[in-house]
Design a protein around this nucleic acid. Structure first.
Length: 428
RNA sequence: GGUGGGGUUCCCGAGUGGUCAAAGGGAUCAGACUGUAAAUCUGACGGCUCAGCCUUCGGAGGUUCAAAUCCUCCCCCCACCA
């Protein structure tokens, strides 16, 4: 089965250019393909996961992916879908972010022995000279065409307008593609559907300057069934960096997938075979939760490793009650089956406090704040007043109480805010 | 450069001297219902030593018993014209 069919079948493809030729090209070549990543943060988030998984599929089918970090373009900012000019990053920040991103990508992609590359477009963009750039590259671009690109058009029509620096983004991205085509024989660029205009511009430039046929694939913007862009939680973006977003939280994020998204997400965000995923479509109600557990387990395994996935699975069982995953459901998944002997809550966010500072001294309100479950005392008071605060499973009635010795049984206090947020306090 | 219109609490967006911590919507949070789902309903949604007090309406001053609302200067954005 060709990569293209695999990607198509799993829901990755929004559009491709030259579908016949592309199919043939991927069939007969060890292709090199690239996707650009913004170095605006030191971590990628699930918003980039579709791109990452696509690169991983490419590699699994014997092609060579390039992760291009936009150290150069990051200084400019892509106008697509953005309302604001990107803030300027220093080279230091970019270098740091680049290292972080590379580390994360290597969990999904094997960078050893030329199986994949990690490049930074700063290498060729920052030394460009304006006049020669205009003469050699700018000449190939028609303003008439550019202003018809959706990314530009929407901004021209918007209140905020579009600055010249952003208008140039397309040229730079096209230049990247040309550069990679020249130096790494990379003839396929992929990206989110908002990248269509930029990708097509690159393909044009490659043809005009190198006389080569290049290709493009775009991925759909992944929204949840309720229509929101996927990957937002109460904590903001869902990061792949375990420091910013723990594997347990990551697991929880996936467990909370909307019913209607489960099969789609299994196809996109796990490597489980499609024949097995198809069968999940028949599940409803509680049974579907088991498929969600598998989705969470597999996604966590891919991003953070099997150990973390297992820990999160067990912690979840101890918090929310254990869940028996039948052996015939998605058999390729490595999630534990049958009844689990005992759950441990080892992955629940935890911090340690000094016992003498807490017992008979600290107000419960402060404890909830210090644990990070509430962002201010007012917030904590509100939570308690509304009946959403629990200590060791018991709902708090008043926010004026102090933590007692009885709360601190075994030197552990389990805090809970609302239905899903747990936090463990260990007293020493 | 000229003229006109703007900058309001996370976002959109009302508000033109007191009744404004500021309408409405969205997002978010909690409760009920559930399946750690969705939808729905209810409530909350600046901070604090919380029936009170303090800090917010681009920034700095000023007028007034009283300002998001009036005046002055400054910063930023938009539209049209040049």
């Amino acid at each position: 089965m060709s990569v293209l069919s695999i990607l198509k079948e799993r829901g990755f493809i929004d559009a491709t250019t030259h579908s016949q030729e592309l199919e043939a090209y991927l069939e007969n070549n060890r292709a090199t393909c690239y996707i650009g990543f913004d170095p605006t943060a030191s971590s990628l988030h699930v918003g980039s996961l579709v791109c990452i998984m696509a690169l991983a599929h490419m590699q699994r089918q014997g092609h060579r992916p390039i992760g291009l970090v936009g150290g150069g373009t990051g200084l400019i900012g892509d106008p697509s879908g953005k309302t604001e000019l990107r803030k300027v990053l220093t080279q230091n920040q970019i270098d740091e972010n680049k290292a972080g991103i590379r580390g994360q990508l290597s969990r999904f992609i094997d960078f050893s022995e030329d199986k994949a590359l990690m490049l930074d477009n700063a290498a060729w963009l920052t030394n460009l000279e304006y006049i020669s750039f205009l003469r050699d590259i700018g000449r190939h671009f028609s303003i008439n065409k550019m202003i018809k690109a959706e990314s530009v058009k929407s901004r021209l029509e918007s209140e905020d307008g579009l600055t010249f620096i952003e208008f140039n983004y397309m040229l730079l991205q096209a230049y990247d593609f040309m550069e990679l085509a020249k130096t790494h024989d990379c003839l396929l660029q992929m990206g989110g559907s908002d990248q269509w205009g930029n990708i097509v511009a690159g393909i044009d430039l490659v043809r005009r300057t190198l006389g080569k046929q290049a290709f493009g694939i775009t991925f759909p913007l992944i929204t949840t069934a309720s229509g929101i862009k996927m990957g937002k939680t109460h904590k903001g973006a869902v990061w792949l960096d375990p420091q910013r977003f723990s594997p347990y939280e990551y697991y929880q994020f996936w467990v909370n997938t909307d019913d209607l998204d489960v099969t789609r997400f299994l196809a996109l965000f796990t490597f489980l075979p499609m024949e097995e995923i198809e069968l999940v479509k028949n599940l409803t109600g509680v049974d579907l939760n088991k498929a969600k557990a598998i989705l969470a387990y597999e996604a966590t395994k891919i991003a953070h490793g099997e150990d973390e996935a297992l820990k999160s699975f067990k912690a979840t069982a101890s918090m929310f009650g254990s869940l028996e995953v039948p052996s015939e459901l998605l058999p390729s998944a490595s999630i534990p089956r049958g009844t689990l002997s005992c759950g441990t809550d080892a992955s629940v966010p935890t911090s340690t406090f000094s016992k003498k500072d807490v017992v008979d001294k600290m107000f419960v309100v402060d404890l909830f704040c210090d644990a990070g479950l509430c962002k201010s005392k007012s917030d904590a008071r509100r939570l308690i007043k509304q009946g959403g605060a629990y200590i060791n499973g018991e709902r708090l009635g008043s926010f004026e109480q102090v933590v007692t010795a009885a709360d601190a049984n075994d030197c552990e206090i389990m805090l809970r805010a609302g239905k899903k947020k747990y936090y463990k306090i260990i007293l020493k």
